[in-house]
Design a protein around this nucleic acid. Structure first.
Lengths: 267, 267
DNA sequence: GGCCGGCGTTGCGCTGGATCAAGCGCGGCG
DNA sequence: CGCCGCGCTTGATCCAGCGCAACGCCGGCC
């Protein structure tokens, strides 16, 4: 399984220019051997064990479980199945979908590498939504009972876990605001600036990346019809804000985009 | 324990008729002494220390701090102020408001007794929104550093804390769905059925209660204009679903209301 | 190579709810 | 008591974005 070459950082590059890839055969070999360890994971500065000392990290390492990579479209877990673990995304990306009543889906989140999936299942002991891979995706499975127990011993881990949950709540609030107050233009601008920022924090280009999700998912997530997404993307392009071709995105004027995302006085 | 008259259950009645208030100087004195203890709090079956043993509850009790009751309109804390504590609502109700950019407020939550306020401030160490009393309201302040430390020792407390956060995330997702997929009618129906349910769980009537918030807040929360709220309330009344007079609400046909809230095939 | 199906774009008419603008009722206060 | 102002309702108009429909593009498969 580990013989596949791309190191974790390669794997989850949303868009990779070959020549910008600092990794080498040597680095790759290293990752072959050690990829399963947090200490050598390129995401360690963003991920759950972020604040742990080396020896503590070993303990943490001991409880995480590797899963076979998910192919595009496969589920990490399904809505309603019993809650057992949370998952840290290692590479690739996922969407969370909640199905209600009669076939009406709501996409509530996209997950990128280093993010924690499944925290909203702790309560009630079943997952409230399905989580599906948008592309080939690898995750670390973290059985929650063991994480909970370990978090009693390791204050930094506990803090980090509280923080992750808190951050997700905060993001949810931002999303609510987007959904209830922003225009379609603002929503899309927000979506792009926010993606750009998330990529930047992970060490990728803030200006050029590849969307792993189809338009329909973007629309669903933002509370817009596909057609509206498409139209507005067209307009943004026309205005020189972005260059979009299929799923390839180049942000041409980030400041202007931020401005659109935040303009309030449109009343 | 049950003798104390302005029992917490009175205190947080959504609507209190003066003459039904059995409170007296004597009762008040007693409550000053005992009210601060979780063991005698009528909310203990819903609140954070829900699963604690008696001796553990004492430890928990030791870290909580009383606050002077908030009057209507007063803030528990303001957006951006440093995060120090979470709060459990004892009586009354609160709203959380996030102000963005230029005077554009978004109301992200209403809090009822036993609910935990401020959890979304853990990350980033400032509160992401102001929390304001909708009526006279009392809360228990729980300094977060001490709660965190105690949660290391008490697994039940830790679990409960994780659950509270998880539940809030789950509710947020429901809210996103409401905001992005539901019609105005469905939103209001959902709002009422959900309030009804929350009151019921707290031991009050599921069918008749008093709204502590003005129409404008309801509209803001649901992503609707005040006028729309008003119109649809009128329509519901006409259809015999509810009887509304000012802030007094009587639910006449809960099942029908639930039906409205959930109908999907409106396409 | 040619066919087919999924994804994305574009055009057009319709409508739910926002917005603007009065009016109304009630509680507080001089 | 009567005035004022806020919160709520009601009516009229407008428009952002939806739904439908047709079309184009691209990638996979026989």
């Amino acid at each position: 399984m580990l013989s596949r070459c791309p190191s974790a950082i390669m794997w989850h590059m949303p868009y990779i220019k070959e020549d910008s890839m600092p990794d080498t055969a040597a680095g790759r070999r290293r990752s072959l051997l050690q990829e399963t360890r947090c200490q050598t994971c390129s995401l360690s500065s963003l991920c759950l064990p972020l604040a742990l000392e080396l020896e503590d990290m070993d303990q943490f390492d001991a409880i995480i479980r590797r899963r076979a990579p998910l192919k595009k479209g496969e589920s990490l877990f399904r809505q309603g199945s019993p809650f057992t673990s949370v998952y840290a995304v290692r590479s690739g990306s996922l969407k969370q979908v909640t199905t209600g009543g009669s076939g009406d889906d709501q996409l509530t989140n996209f997950y990128l590498p280093s993010e924690l999936v499944g925290l909203d299942g702790i309560d009630e002991e079943t997952y409230p939504g399905s989580v599906v891979a948008l592309e080939t995706t690898t995750v670390c499975e973290i059985p929650f009972d063991r994480l909970d127990a370990l978090s009693a011993k390791l204050p930094e881990l506990r803090t980090q876990l509280y923080r992750s949950m808190s951050k997700e709540m905060r993001d949810d609030r931002r999303m609510m605001r987007l959904l209830s107050r922003k225009t379609a233009d603002q929503r899309l601008a927000t979506f792009f600036t926010s993606l750009s920022d998330r990529f930047r924090r992970r060490g990728y280009s803030a200006y050029s990346f590849r969307l792993s999700m189809p338009r329909a998912d973007i629309g669903n997530y933002l509370g817009l019809a596909v057609e509206t997404v498409s139209r507005i993307l067209g307009r943004f392009q026309q205005q020189g804000l972005v260059a979009v071709s299929g799923r390839e995105v180049h942000i041409l004027d980030l400041d202007a985009l931020i401005e659109v995302a935040e303009e309030e006085g449109c009343r």
